[in-house]
Amino acid sequence: MSQENWAFAATVVVLLGMATLVGRALGRQTQLGLNPAAIAAFNRRVRAWWVICAALSVALLSKWLTVMLFGLVSFAALREFITLTPTRLSDHRALFWVFFFFLPLQYLLVWRNAYPLFSVMIPVFAFVFVPMRVAIAGDPKRFLERVAKIQTGMLICVYCLSYAPAVLYLEAPGLTHSGAARLLFLLVLLSLLSEAVQFAWSRLYGRHVIAPQINQSRTWEGFLGSSATIGLVGAALYQIGATPFTKLWHAAAASMLVAVMGFAGSMTMSAIKRDRRVQDYGVLTEGQPGVLDRADALCFAAPVFYHAVRWFLQG
């Protein structure tokens, strides 16, 4: 690997190591009155982040393997989403098209770098096809609700998440495959790290819960503190040459957007879980978090990060 890649890899290890130490330190601070279950959940997330970042090392080796990896993640996330938002028998053929045609086609278009097409394929063509196919099945009961569930699952789990590997195909003056791979690592790392920082800010300084009925651990202090902190992390990474951005404010703004949109994703998916009265999206093992629990922040951050970086690097 190049010197920049080694520097970035070392930074990833340091940041994840800091998150690990924060989790362990919070677990020992019994006098703070923190919820042991919440701290245990946070530490499980940090361990999962180590695995995720290790798996992402494939991005430095092969673009198509990275696209395939995210395609499998999308398939698992969409399966969890559909399982927790039950559909009727008449929806199964529409779901077949979603899982085995539109999902693979979306990632195929990403792999072929067909940007104008993959950016509209699901929100235009798939969104028109799904209600038509459900209507042909001849079951009008809760028609609008059923169609909305399928479309929402496609939008979040497939369309939005597919923008993460699409970062590898960004074209800009001086941007190499190595630089694009660092951008993907930056997106994933900051979306994960923002959750750790938000957790720490909320537990230590949180006073005003944003939406108690949705998520009692999300506070305004945590949101503002984590957004500012992640922006500073992005600026620091720029200073050491670990990002391909050409301006300091580009790195800081893109990083802050990841934190803001990651927060939006976590809140949105928490609202869906509260509506379905479940704790986690995991469906394979009872009581275990699912793929969508780990990727909720990334799903919302990926498309915004992609377009912001595209504008910054090409502007």
Score class of each variant (00 low, 15 high):
70 F>G: 00
71 G>C: 11
72 L>P: 05
73 V>K: 03
73 V>R: 01
76 A>F: 07
76 A>W: 10
76 A>C: 11
77 A>N: 06
78 L>W: 02
78 L>G: 09
78 L>S: 04
79 R>T: 15
79 R>H: 09
79 R>Y: 11
80 E>I: 02
81 F>W: 14
81 F>K: 01
81 F>H: 14
81 F>A: 06
82 I>S: 07
82 I>M: 07
82 I>L: 07
82 I>C: 14
82 I>A: 08
84 L>P: 03
85 T>G: 04
87 T>Q: 15
88 R>L: 15
89 L>R: 11
90 S>W: 01
90 S>R: 13
90 S>H: 05
90 S>L: 03
90 S>K: 06
92 H>E: 13
92 H>Y: 11
92 H>V: 11
92 H>M: 13
93 R>Y: 13
93 R>I: 15
93 R>K: 10
94 A>G: 12
94 A>P: 15
95 L>R: 03
95 L>P: 07
95 L>N: 11
96 F>D: 14
96 F>A: 15
96 F>Q: 08
96 F>C: 08
96 F>R: 10
97 W>M: 11
97 W>G: 15
97 W>T: 07
98 V>C: 13
99 F>N: 03
100 F>R: 00
100 F>H: 11
101 F>D: 04
101 F>V: 11
102 F>M: 11
102 F>H: 00
103 L>V: 06
104 P>L: 07
104 P>D: 04
104 P>N: 07
104 P>S: 04
106 Q>F: 09
107 Y>V: 01
107 Y>I: 02
